[in-house]
Simulated scan of single mutants.
Amino acid sequence: MTATPVYIVTGASRGLGFNVAKRLLGQASKVVAVARTEAGMAQLAEEFPGQVEYVTGDLADYATGEKAVKVAAEKFGGIDGIVFNAAVIHPVATIANTDINEFKRLFDINFFSILTTLKPAMPYLRESKGNVVFVSSEASYESHFYGWEAYGSSKACVNHLAATLAVEEPDVFAISVDPGVMDSAMQAEIREKHGTNMKQDHIDYLNKVKEDGSIPSIDPPASVIVSMVTKGPAELNGTYYAFNSPTLSPFITA
Results as ranks from 00 to 15, higher is better:
E47S: 14
L206N: 11
A222I: 03
S128A: 15
Y7C: 08
G232Q: 04
V209Y: 11
Y151W: 11
A21Q: 09
A63F: 01
I203K: 07
R105T: 14
S245P: 14
A254F: 10
D58N: 14
P246V: 02
A21R: 08
T117G: 01
A188Q: 15
L44N: 00
A68N: 04
H202D: 11
A3P: 12
T116V: 10
V32K: 04
S245E: 06
K119R: 15
V52C: 03
D80R: 09
I8C: 04
E53A: 13
P250E: 04
M182P: 01
V32D: 02
S249C: 04
G65Y: 05
I95D: 01
P221G: 02
D201V: 00
K67D: 00
E47T: 15
T4N: 13
G15Y: 09
W148T: 03
F76D: 06
T116L: 07
S128I: 01
Y7V: 03
V181I: 15
T253L: 15
G78F: 10
I218C: 12
A156M: 12
F134I: 14
A242R: 15
I252E: 02
Y146W: 12
L125T: 07
I114M: 11
L106V: 00
L125G: 00
Q27W: 04
A234V: 10
F134Y: 14
K70W: 07
A188V: 13
T253P: 08
P216L: 07
E192R: 06
K22F: 01
K30A: 02
I79N: 04
V31F: 04
L161V: 09
W148Y: 14
G26F: 09
P170N: 10
F134S: 13
N237R: 08
F107I: 05
E127L: 13
F48S: 04
G195I: 01
K75R: 15
Y7F: 15
P179C: 04
G213M: 10
E66K: 15
L125R: 06
I225Y: 11
C157W: 07
L16P: 02
R191Q: 08
A72T: 09
A185W: 13
Y240P: 01
S249Q: 14
Y62K: 09
D219W: 04
S140D: 02
L24F: 06
K30G: 00
P5N: 13
S227F: 15
E47M: 11
N97F: 00
A234Q: 15
S136M: 10
V229L: 05
Q200S: 13
T37M: 06
Y151H: 09
D201K: 10
P123E: 08
N159K: 07
A87I: 08
I215R: 11
I218H: 12
A60T: 03
Y62G: 12
S113T: 10
K119P: 00
A162L: 07
P5G: 02
